[in-house]
Amino acid sequence: MAYSDKVIDHYENPRNVGSLGKDEDDVGTGLVGAPACGDVMKLQIRVKDGVISDAKFKTFGCGSAIASSSLATEMIKGMTLDQAASIRNTEIVQELNLPPVKIHCSVLAEDAIKAAVDDYKKKQAARDAQA
């Protein structure tokens, strides 16, 4: 199967690879997928004044899964939490020219963003409750 140039670019030069401190207050972590399905994405955000100031990812998956999560981290930097949570997988499909068999990769990236935002919000709610 041939990959689009954009998938190859993200695969060969993935953006924002790495990890943020999972236990830090201003970090939200999303971990989605399953090893048995051949796809696991970890996407993390750092939030400052309601805006995503940094994003990192690590992905176990095919080239399209790696590219989808790499692109997702690029897209959400500078966004508010609500903006990030409203990103649809179709935007990723379009940007990367993903074929139909790879659409699930973009869905997983969308899920990963949402999971990271949820995790951050839960953390804040827990902290607010304690305060």
Binding site: P14, V17, S19, L31, G33, A34, P35, A36, V40, M41, K42, K58, T59, F60, I66
Partner: peptide, 19 residues
């Protein structure tokens, strides 16, 4: 690039996670 490798390095059993 792999979150599973990172977990393995951190001594986390991948089978113990609710996927």
């Amino acid at each position: 690039l792999s979150p599973l490798w990172e977990m393995h390095q951190d001594g986390i059993d991948i089978k113990s996670i609710q996927w």
